[in-house]
Amino acid sequence: MAAGGDHGSPDSYRSPLASRYASPEMCFVFSDRYKFRTWRQLWLWLAEAEQTLGLPITDEQIQEMKSNLENIDFKMAAEEEKRLRHDVMAHVHTFGHCCPKAAGIIHLGATSCYVGDNTDLIILRNALDLLLPKLARVISRLADFAKERASLPTLGFTHFQPAQLTTVGKRCCLWIQDLCMDLQNLKRVRDDLRFRGVKGTTGTQASFLQLFEGDDHKVEQLDKMVTEKAGFKRAFIITGQTYTRKVDIEVLSVLASLGASVHKICTDIRLLANLKEMEEPFEKQQIGSSAMPYKRNPMRSERCCSLARHLMTLVMDPLQTASVQWFERTLDDSANRRICLAEAFLTADTILNTLQNISEGLVVYPKVIERRIRQELPFMATENIIMAMVKAGGSRQDCHEKIRVLSQQAASVVKQEGGDNDLIERIQVDAYFSPIHSQLDHLLDPSSFTGRASQQVQRFLEEEVYPLLKPYESVMKVKAELCL
């Protein structure tokens, strides 16, 4: 049975990233139509530049190519590739079939990587351009969430054990800070992308030097003109047959890092959902379990974690691919890159769409948070109580021993009897502590235990987050809708 299948058929496997999760716009960027249309555009740009620099290419040939950029006979191309065992030459023939007058000058002087690699770089750039505003929107939604809850005390956790208090907004800023680093890295790697350009079979530009009869300047002009037509500021000066596969490492490393950030955020949300302090959106008709109707599973956060793990592992592909590119190139890269580049971007696209949807509907339960604080705060307040007693004339050592005994009794009630923490009640009825009984409410005010959390939130948002989001103001209103 021949390899390949009808990918629109229910009898043929289709990647869930495309069929179930990723956005239509990201799927289109990695589609065959987008790819092969870009090949034709690159052939047109090459012909236009070659004509401008004096090669015998007519206006009629150029116009014929322009008129057929979208006229792609995919069936013919597939048949040609089956016959020739070469995808680029299959599309040269297919393009030439609908451009008979231009057929002889299509791909003039070029090698397969002229269309293959340059198209990949265009796709990487455009895919990054799709991700950047999506990530900015996630940051914006979380920034709104953090600002609104900047002063809401909550129990902090280290080692997932109760620690000092923080605020809900401050905790959210930990998430935002990681995503801001990801946004900066995505922008950097996007701006650092260079075009492969017009380089020939081993990167020496020998074929173009021959076409222009040894004119170095025209060869350099050709490279520059096509690079500018493709919208790049610069091209690699040095290439082998391909652009260095280190570029793929750079791009997928940034995406993998984004995956790590999203995994951490969504894990926190899942843990908070278990504590009943916070939940992701839950639709009115949504079913959490087929057997347990009360369940409210954090399905979206779980999906993000599941896909983020996949995204983090994909960076190993370009690392290994770059390491086995012998001399000017081997074909070890080809099949692998067809999979890992598309999957990385479709996965990143999915987790950003999902995280935006989550961040637009996060639900906080202040009463649950308050109750958990009441359970733990008495123990945390013991040092403040000791200091207040010393100020009232008591002995630190005597007070410490009193607190120690009462704390152990209260802990026994919590752990052995399943009761509430009654340390404060014990202190309130103990005559030894009568000098500070009137101060206990103040000493137990949760806001006095959150330090500068709310001020940190305000400063972080104003100095770091809002300036970073400013270039994306025009796209901030787009909502994230999930079908599944």
Rank of each mutant, 00 (worst) to 15 (best):
Q184P: 02
V138T: 13
F208G: 08
K147Q: 02
E148M: 05
K229M: 15
T166R: 10
L482P: 05
G231Q: 03
I105T: 09
L155T: 04
A47M: 04
D441V: 08
T158S: 00
A260W: 11
E48D: 00
F195Q: 00
D223Y: 01
G96K: 05
P24D: 07
C98M: 03
Q221L: 02
S207L: 04
K229I: 06
F449A: 05
S447D: 07
K134E: 01
D59G: 10
L469V: 12
Y34P: 15
Y243V: 14
R37C: 06
L183M: 03
L186P: 05
G240C: 13
V475H: 14
S207D: 01
D87S: 00
K66E: 03
K147S: 05
N274R: 03
I427Q: 14
W326E: 11
M76T: 00
L468W: 07
A110T: 07
D120G: 07
N68Q: 14
L46G: 12
V363F: 13
T119A: 08
Q205Y: 02
N297S: 02
E50P: 12
E464R: 06
K402P: 10
F345T: 08
V324Q: 14
C399G: 09
L209P: 10
A102L: 07
L121C: 09
R40D: 12
Q409F: 12
L423Q: 15
L362I: 11
S438R: 03
A235E: 12
C98Q: 05
F345C: 12
V405Q: 15
S253W: 00
L165D: 08
T202F: 07
R196K: 05
A322Y: 15
W45D: 08
E481N: 10
M312K: 02
T111H: 05
C172N: 00
A344R: 08
C27S: 12
S9C: 07
M476T: 09
Q51Y: 05
G96L: 06
D445Y: 03
N118K: 04
N357V: 02
R309P: 07
S112N: 01
I57E: 01
E417W: 11
L484G: 09
M380A: 11
F236M: 07
V115W: 01
Q325S: 07
G231L: 10
L307V: 03
N71W: 07
E279Q: 03
E277S: 10
R33V: 11
M26A: 00
E463N: 05
H437D: 01
E213K: 06
